[in-house]
Amino acid sequence: MKAALLLRALMAGAPAALLAVLLTVLLTAAPATAQDKPEQTKPDKVSFGTNWVAEAEHGGFFQAVADGTYARYGLDVTIVPGGPNNNNRMLLISGKIDFFMAANTLMSFDAVANNVPLVAVAAIFQKDPQVFLTHPESRVSKLEDLKPLTLFVSKEGITGYFQWMKSEYGFSEKNVRPYTFNPQPFIATPQSAMQGYVTSEPFAVEKAAGFKPGVLLLADYGFNGYSTLIETRQDVIEKKPGLVQRFVDASIIGWYNYLYGDNSPGNALIKKLNPDMTDELLAYSVSKMKENGIVDSGDTLKNGIGAMTDERMTSFFAKMVRAGLVKADTDYRKSYTLRFVNKAVGLELRPKQ
């Protein structure tokens, strides 16, 4: 209406003063049209597959969903839990999900070797949580002390980290027995050691057997691969780098909040998805992650959670070549990118020493 008045005034040759008044009213009082209003952008839907059922070792991701961190980064994230019958990595490869939580760096090397276009964009665990548990009476104090013991090792362990133990420390498979993720054979055999994760199996053994097992963390003896990496496809990186950056950044914030803040929202979501999880085990796992620097240590102290370096990747690759797990001509640098990490995101959330 006001625009029409101004147009009629112009056509009628109205005085300049009147035209100025009408123009001022038009500019200051006219209601905004639909085109004037900023568009309401919807959050980007993102799916993230884990490699096991919900547990504290995935806590930062669940925290970022539960406390709204992903939402603040413009993301609507659905976490797809893994498990014994779920292959979420295949869902990533086939384009059914956007990101995947890879267990270790060997998986990333293997993708390159098999021309699978997956790339690690962040390493949440700076230390692989793989350990060996021992009986107190065996008086094991270092990795080499395991050699005369019966070793309960899984099929995956034999074809993975145990080959490194053979090449770096001279272990053999003569004393190895199958580990079926049941601690009872270990508990019943005093002169034995059992594989596990520092965040869970020691707790389970102490509950079941009534003794506190000795724990040897392989990362403390040179097994320096990253663990719990965020993987995505190369095409996602090329087409949606901003989305990848937001997912990585928000996940990092989620992990800081889970380790150092109020992690009850994340734990509540974990227990909802995995009713077998207990508050006691969740608290134990978080304490062991912090105590052993699983998530926040080394390069993360300066570069932030999720940090990766070329030096670490090169070192681990050389060890895996010596162990016969990777071919020397594998272009391992294609397995990861530093583009989205080492930006000191979230450092202010770490408690001051």
Rank of each mutant, 00 (worst) to 15 (best):
L269T: 12
A54E: 11
A29Q: 15
T78P: 03
Y284Q: 04
R233F: 02
P129L: 03
Q191W: 08
D235P: 01
G83H: 07
S172E: 10
F109I: 13
G242K: 12
K147R: 14
V131I: 12
L18T: 01
V176E: 11
S251C: 07
P265D: 00
N86H: 00
V248T: 10
L325W: 12
Q184R: 11
F171P: 06
A122N: 09
F171S: 05
K352W: 06
E168S: 13
T159F: 07
P351R: 13
V176Y: 10
Q245K: 11
A188M: 09
L146Y: 05
D36W: 06
M107Q: 13
D67E: 06
Y73L: 00
D36I: 03
M289F: 09
G242Q: 08
S141F: 11
F203G: 03
S297W: 12
P84F: 02
F99H: 00
A208F: 05
N87I: 00
P136V: 05
R246D: 02
H58Q: 01
V286W: 07
F203V: 04
D329M: 01
Y260F: 15
M289E: 15
F211C: 00
L301A: 14
S172N: 11
V121W: 03
L92D: 07
F62T: 00
G306K: 05
F125T: 00
L143R: 06
Y73R: 05
M308I: 06
A193V: 10
L325P: 15
F109M: 09
G59S: 13
E231C: 14
F62D: 05
V244E: 02
F61M: 04
L5A: 15
D220L: 06
T189A: 03
A56W: 06
L133D: 07
K290L: 14
E137K: 14
I252E: 10
G74T: 01
A12L: 09
F186G: 03
L347V: 11
T33P: 00
F109R: 05
A307T: 09
P129H: 05
R246G: 01
T199W: 06
N257L: 02
Q234Y: 12
E39D: 00
P178T: 00
L151Y: 12
